[in-house]
Computed example of a mutant assay.
Amino acid sequence: MELEFSGEVWSWRGPAPYHFVWVPHDEAEQIAETAAAVTYGWGMVPVTVTIGDTAWTTSLWPKDGRYVVPLKDKVRRAEAIELGTVVHLRLRIEI
């Protein structure tokens, strides 16, 4: 499964800061339909994410009936992504 969408980068200020992008509702519904086949626990869904010229593997985190894409610091630096930046993402989920 491949999905593309854009979203604004936001931060969660827990014990360590994390940066995320929400998966839009429609795409989250598509992911939820196949999540049981790929999740490895706690609803986490392994994905390959591409932003610009940078691709990496991570897992979508389930939150509030949707999913969030965590953005690694290395990726944010490579693509000059700041808090509040709207980014275009491509997700690939192996089913």
Rank of each mutant, 00 (worst) to 15 (best):
S6D: 06
M1D: 01
L91F: 04
I93A: 01
F20P: 12
E27D: 14
E8F: 12
K63P: 11
T57L: 07
M44S: 09
A36N: 10
K63N: 15
E27Y: 06
W61Y: 15
S6Y: 05
W56H: 04
W61T: 13
L83C: 05
V47H: 00
V68T: 05
F20C: 12
F5H: 06
G43K: 02
R92G: 00
R90N: 03
V87K: 06
A80R: 07
S59F: 00
W56G: 03
K74Y: 11
V23T: 02
G84N: 05
V86S: 08
T34Y: 03
V69E: 08
V38T: 13
F5L: 10
V87N: 06
I93P: 02
L60S: 09
S59V: 00
G52Q: 01
E29M: 06
E82L: 11
E2G: 01
P15I: 09
V45G: 14
E29F: 01
T39H: 12
A80C: 03
K63G: 08
I81P: 06
S11T: 11
A16I: 14
G43A: 03
P15A: 09
E82I: 03
M44A: 13
T85Q: 09
V49E: 00
I93S: 01
E8S: 14
A16K: 14
R66N: 13
T54W: 00
D64L: 11
K72G: 05
V38Y: 08
G41K: 06
D64C: 07
D64P: 04
F5S: 06
L3T: 01
A16T: 12
H25M: 13
D64G: 12
R92Y: 00
L71R: 05
E29Y: 01
A16P: 05
G41H: 07
P15S: 10
V38S: 13
R77T: 15
V23P: 02
G84H: 07
E94V: 05
F5V: 01
G43S: 04
I51K: 09
E4P: 03
A16S: 13
A32K: 15
R76A: 08
G14K: 10
F5D: 04
K63T: 13
P15W: 10
H19P: 01
V68A: 09
A28Y: 08
Y40S: 14
R77H: 15
W61H: 15
Y18F: 15
F20V: 10
V9T: 11
P17F: 13
V9N: 13
S6E: 11
L89I: 03
I95F: 14
H88T: 07
Y18W: 15
E27T: 01
K72M: 06
V69T: 10
E79P: 00
V45P: 10
W56Q: 04
E4T: 00
G65A: 15
